[in-house]
Structures are given as structure tokens and as C-alpha cells.
């Protein structure tokens, strides 16, 4: 097993391109090291991207923020601008693991690990975030929901990596929220996750909404019916009920060690409703 820590993106891509065997990209490493230890993966090459400076930074761009692939949770959580613009995304990232894990784990790593239960992904999907995918052919920006194709599977090409995620600008009277259900208060994988982003007009009517659910299907899902339930309403009790119904209807979970089908279906609705209430409150503060 080789280890490389390139200092430029080009060098990283070149390493990926030239390795015929199994490659793992090391950002925070909080998933990769666990997989290594359990023997789940035996890479021929590990590419540490943390020494690529551009990947370590958060930059303001067109009123939004570009988050480098190697930015850890603790750093993102300490960035006032991102916290103000996308509080739901930040709280989702901060829910990943312990304080110790926050010192390492990255949002992009969470995305590329392609777990259906990844906390940050429903929040990013709700936020309409895009991933910048870079490979030998250059870069392309794609919606984050296009990255995972199934549990542990991504749409990335063999020598491609996600260089950054872009969280767009958003209007006034808008905000987002993410909630997950876990049986403890910390340290668990989401049994259900719900991310919601909304925009209200001056009259308190919802003009735009995105609702995403995690851990209730093979990948994080954008639930358009749930968004439709909110748009054009003042997000009153009836709209929340319709939202919850839509979220529960969209859920196609499995029974596993973390929860049952019935539980996940019901709680998907409960969390969507609760997240929407938080997002509405936040949009008023703005």
C-alpha cells in the first residue's frame, strides 16, 4: 500500500490516473481508516488531499461559499459566514460523530462516502449545493444528489474526485434546517434524516422549498412532493401535515439494526415537520 500526499490538485489527479489498482482518497479519514482496519478495503494507493491548499479553504463566491474537500467539520462550524447563510448545512455537518471526529471529518468526505444515512447530504441537497468534480478531462459542477448512486457507490469516474462543494447564495426570508433521529443524543448514525430549505416572500408565503431525506432509501432523496406541500402556503398546520405525509410517503426504508421500516416511515414525516418549523423560524429572524 502506497501513501501519497500531493500538494496540488493536478498532482493528485495524476496519481489517480496512473494507479491501476484500488485507490482511496484520504480527506478526514474517519470512514477510510475504519474501512482499512476492518479489512473492508485494501487499497494499493492512498492519496491524502489535505496538503492541497485550495482544498483546505472556504471562499466566498457569488454570495455563496465554496467549501474545499479537506475542510473539517470543526473549521466549517467556526466559519461565521457559512453558519449565517446555511445554518442547517452547518448543523448537519456538526452532527457527524464526536468532537474528535469533527476535527477530521469533512463534508465532501461525507458526500463521497455515499452512505444513505450521511448527515450532511440531505442538508446539502436541500440547499441546492453543487459538487465540483475534477478529473483528467477537467472540472464539472453537478448537483450533490448526483454523486451517490447507491450505498457506497458514486458516479465519479476512476480518476475523478470532488474538489469542493458550492453552497449557493440565497434570498432574504429564507433559511434551512436539518434534523436527524438517533436513539442516543450523540455518536449514532442517523436512523432518519431530514433537510429542508425554504424561501418566503414578504407576505410570509413560501415561494421556494427543497426537502431531502436520508436513511429511508438506498441514497439520499430529494422529495419534490414534500416541497410542493409547502410552496404557496404560509407553512401553516395544514401545510406541515401535508409535508409530513409527503415525506412519509416518499420513504422506502429497510429494516436493519438501526430501525424498522414502520418507524422510519413515520419518523421521516415527524422530522420533516419539525425541521420545517425550525427553518421558518430562522427565515423570520433574517
Amino acid at each position: 500500500m502506497r501513501f501519497e500526499a500531493p500538494t496540488s490538485l493536478n498532482a493528485a489527479i495524476e496519481l489517480l490516473e496512473n494507479e491501476a489498482g484500488v485507490v482511496r482518497i484520504l480527506a478526514g479519514g474517519t470512514d477510510v481508516l475504519v474501512q482499512l482496519r476492518s479489512g473492508q478495503v485494501e487499497p494499493d494507493l492512498i492519496v491524502d488531499i489535505k496538503r492541497i491548499e485550495a482544498m483546505q479553504t472556504i471562499t466566498e463566491e457569488d454570495g455563496g461559499f465554496r467549501i474545499g474537500a479537506a475542510v473539517c467539520g470543526a473549521e466549517l462550524g467556526g466559519h461565521a459566514g457559512v453558519c449565517k447563510l446555511w445554518p442547517g448545512v452547518v448543523e448537519a455537518v456538526e452532527l457527524i460523530g464526536s468532537t474528535q471526529v469533527q476535527g477530521r471529518a469533512t463534508m465532501v468526505g461525507n458526500l463521497c462516502n455515499a452512505s444513505p444515512a450521511a448527515d450532511s447530504v440531505p442538508a446539502m441537497v436541500a440547499a441546492g449545493a453543487t459538487a465540483r468534480v475534477t478529473g483528467p478531462e477537467g472540472s464539472r459542477d453537478i448537483p450533490v444528489e448526483k454523486i451517490a448512486t447507491g450505498p457506497g457507490q458514486t458516479s465519479l469516474g476512476r480518476a475523478e474526485l470532488v474538489e469542493s462543494v458550492y453552497l449557493p447564495a440565497r434570498g432574504v426570508h429564507s433559511s434551512d434546517a436539518y434534523l436527524r433521529f438517533i436513539p442516543r443524543t450523540e455518536m449514532d448514525i442517523a436512523v432518519v434524516g431530514a433537510g429542508i430549505s425554504i424561501e418566503m416572500d414578504g407576505n410570509g408565503i413560501c415561494t421556494h422549498a427543497r426537502v431531502a431525506l436520508g436513511a429511508v432509501g438506498p441514497r439520499v432523496m430529494l422529495v419534490e412532493d414534500a416541497a410542493t406541500a409547502l410552496i404557496g402556503t404560509s407553512i401553516d398546520e395544514a401545510a406541515l401535515e401535508a409535508l409530513a405525509q409527503a415525506a412519509s410517503s416518499a420513504a422506502t426504508p429497510i429494516d436493519d439494526k438501526r430501525g424498522t421500516v414502520d418507524f422510519r416511515i413515520k419518523v421521516a414525516g415527524v422530522l420533516a415537520r419539525r425541521a420545517a418549523i425550525i427553518a421558518v423560524q430562522r427565515s423570520r429572524v433574517d
Binding site: 436513539p183 442516543r184 443524543t185 450523540e186 455518536m187 449514532d188 448514525i189 439494526k257 438501526r258
Partner: peptide, 12 residues
């Protein structure tokens, strides 16, 4: 593993 065996943590 401790992840899914779920012993109480301080915040519980």
C-alpha cells in the same frame, strides 16, 4: 462495535 452497540454517552 461501540457505534451500534450504543452505550450511554455523557450527553444522554
Amino acid at each position: 462495535g461501540f457505534l451500534d452497540y450504543r452505550m450511554p454517552v455523557a450527553s444522554d
